[in-house]
């Protein structure tokens, strides 16, 4: 989609068009529909199935999760491409924003797949708790990711608010190595106006501050993921080199 340039502050019509476009992009690129997740909410892994995951070797489970994570990232790439103005950015800046932001958006989106009533997440077609991921050998990362999902769910965002927040996470002019920071800044500024407009309309202005607080948590979770990957790749360099998805390696190693 084209990004219509307009004077600042943007007109109400422009804000509403931008909001609609982001919401549509989010809906069209979500890996799972909310109704689908809701219907499967109590489809839990059996004891035997959990045991099978826990019996996988560290490298087997890392590979399995790297494949799942890469699938989720691919949907985020599609989302980014449909954010008005994103494709108008230089290729370097598109890559930079996705390299630094795709995992953050995956984590935000993960909260849609989370059941707070029993602390389980949708994975491989069923819901499972942190115990499912035991063989990864990074319990602290998993607990931190689940805690984050809990805190996101507590905000009870609508799909529209979630869509806007995901676009804000991605379109971040503070990322290092951007060539046209000004252009990213202008996109970001309009998205911020959209979020304020939406929260005002929903009478939930207090959410704005809470959402901006999540940004630093996201960044620390991503650092922890890269730290764990570094630890893993030192122990299993061949696994990373030969069987991890190429996109995962490009983004995270």
């Amino acid at each position: 989609p084209e990004y219509p340039y307009c004077p600042y502050p943007p007109s109400l019509l422009h804000i509403e068009e931008l909001c609609d476009s982001i919401v549509r992009s989010h809906r069209d690129t979500s890996q799972f529909r909310l109704e689908e997740l809701q219907a499967l909410r109590w489809k839990l892994f059996s004891r035997e199935e959990i045991h099978a995951y826990q019996s996988k070797s560290v490298d087997e489970m890392w590979q399995h999760c790297a494949v799942r994570l890469t699938e989720a990232v691919q949907y985020v790439v599609e989302f980014a491409k449909r954010i008005p103005g994103f494709r108008g950015l230089g290729q370097n800046d598109q890559i930079t924003l996705l390299k630094t932001g795709s995992m953050e958006v995956v984590l935000v989106r993960m909260s849609r797949c989370f059941n707070t009533e029993n602390s389980t997440v949708f994975f491989d077609g069923k819901f499972g708790s942190t115990e499912l991921f035991k063989s990864l050998g990074c319990g602290d990362l998993m607990v931190a990711v689940f805690d984050f999902a809990h805190s996101m769910c507590a905000l009870r965002l609508t799909e529209q608010q979630m869509a806007l927040f995901c676009s804000l996470v991605l379109i971040n002019p503070d990322r290092p190595c951007l060539e046209d920071r000004g252009r990213v800044h202008r996109m970001r500024r309009d998205l911020e106006v959209c979020l304020s407009h939406m929260l005002h309309r929903d009478n939930q202005e207090s959410l704005q501050h809470k959402l901006y607080q999540k940004v630093s948590v996201l960044q620390s979770l991503c650092s922890l993921h890269v730290e764990k990957l570094h630890w893993f790749s030192q122990r299993y360099p061949l696994t990373v080199h030969s069987v991890f998805p190429p996109l995962y390696k490009e983004l995270f190693t």
């Binding site: 691919q74 790439v77 599609e78 491409k81 449909r82 494709r87 290729q91 370097n92 598109q94 890559i95 930079t96 996705l98 390299k99 190595c177 190429p246 996109l247 490009e250 983004l251």
Partner: peptide, 17 residues
């Protein structure tokens, strides 16, 4: 960056489905 991110670059080049 394009050279180091060939897969991502290709995904970005593909038209949206």
């Amino acid at each position: 960056l394009k050279e180091k991110h060939k897969i991502l670059h290709r995904l970005l080049q593909n038209s949206t489905s």
